[in-house]
Nucleic acid binder design. Sequence first.
DNA 1: AAATTTTGTGACAAATTGAAAAAAACAGGT
DNA 2: ACCTGTTTTTTTCAATTTGTCACAAAATTT
Lengths: 260, 260
Amino acid sequence: MKINQRHEKIIELLSREGQFSVETLAQRLDVSLMTIRRDLKTLSQTGQVSRTHGGAVLSRTGSINFLFQQRENQNLPKKQAIAREVIRMIHPGNGIILDNGSTTLEVARAMSSMSDLTVLSSSLLVASVLHTNERMEVVLLGGVVRKNFPDLTGPLTEENLKGFRVHLAVVGADAASSEGTFTHDVRTARVTKVMTQAADRVVVVFDSSKFTKTALAHCLDWKDIHVVVTDEACPESIRSWLNKAVSKVIYAPLTPSSSQ
Amino acid sequence: MKINQRHEKIIELLSREGQFSVETLAQRLDVSLMTIRRDLKTLSQTGQVSRTHGGAVLSRTGSINFLFQQRENQNLPKKQAIAREVIRMIHPGNGIILDNGSTTLEVARAMSSMSDLTVLSSSLLVASVLHTNERMEVVLLGGVVRKNFPDLTGPLTEENLKGFRVHLAVVGADAASSEGTFTHDVRTARVTKVMTQAADRVVVVFDSSKFTKTALAHCLDWKDIHVVVTDEACPESIRSWLNKAVSKVIYAPLTPSSSQ
DNA sequence: AAATTTTGTGACAAATTGAAAAAAACAGGT
DNA sequence: ACCTGTTTTTTTCAATTTGTCACAAAATTT
């Protein structure tokens, strides 16, 4: 049994029975006392368990651990450049819908110091980034918690959106082609579509690598989109048709403060 | 077999079984250990898997940090005793509403290994405890994220609840007296009240220390409650009137498995 | 056939584990 | 409150496993 497996097992055992002695854990997992102590040390350093004399209990600190797959962690500079452009469209008093996705998450991070905004989102990550801001109201749309993803989908999410009307919807995409935007999951595609219907202005954000990717679920047609924000690495071959398909396209410069 | 094919195969195997050793992967794909290591290196650089010593797991590094005030961390054994009694009322196929609060959180923890349940909650903590269970559907009610608390309140939360009808609502209380239950926050009191209206059966859980506390917002009348679960430390002076006020009161024994 | 990419092999570095000894914490008893 | 014996933790070290690097062999592409 590998170290990570053992760590997960310890957490599992602890969450089932509350507390365990080092000795019992060592017997159950068939390793030495020393190994369990080392495991508990690392687990307590990451805040997952609390040590006691002779054992450990589940840590009940004030942080939530949502485990989920981290699909994309790339193109962060591009996403940040895109986020910088998007927040220039946001003004105090606005109501904003934020989709889930790594690019919209960067938008949320860039927004985190703004004030007097109402933010609607289906993403627990977005909520976690913004909820500490006292001058911002964060509304989490209801819905089914998707397995392995920190977001909400389903009829409830879609129904909730119908009760709102916001200035701006910032939505993402997993892939883009001349036929529009695409996402990997049909459920999130539906939510994204409804989000755009609840907003006066629809901004779609995705880095230029998305033009070379494919995703199964069609999400938005270009005609439903008011602004596309992508990055300057977008090749000319794409710009030529994209500029025709969407009324406003912003190619975010990667250098932080080039102009304006 | 091409390199990309192999990478996809590794992801596929990992998503099926969660974890693989380098050696097993090398055997399955009929390549050397070095090749697998190189594959895992590139896959972990693109964030698709996480390396472990001797193997790899699907990347699940994402953890959300909701910081919040940690009001109560006491009486854990009592709360766990209460939770043990509550889960005996829960059966496969049921729909359950879980309120927020430290006692209902223990109920969620006790529920975490059950299956075929639909759980509605306004608590992000409850969702974080249950969302990894594949055999459970976790529905988060929409609402405003309360500052410093990992839960949702507001009109949207209340409105959402009206669309559901569940077998059991498990709700908490910050204080209890002969006049009913009380909570510190008016907003959560409202949500709790609506929760009870959406359930066939209302179970209120709180440890016996709550009888000596006060909280400003009146939440529930005893007549609206079907079952109260508290712990055996509840004094006789309270039991005498509580037994008359509520049709069923359970005084959970603190010893884990005394009898049944 | 040459160039590029991919794969395998060996030597060495790093991590994981378990055992034993030393240090610290705990529980009674005086 | 102090001491003492026991339990637990920490420290250190050696054995084993695993990972990394550099370079050669093989396969693929041009």
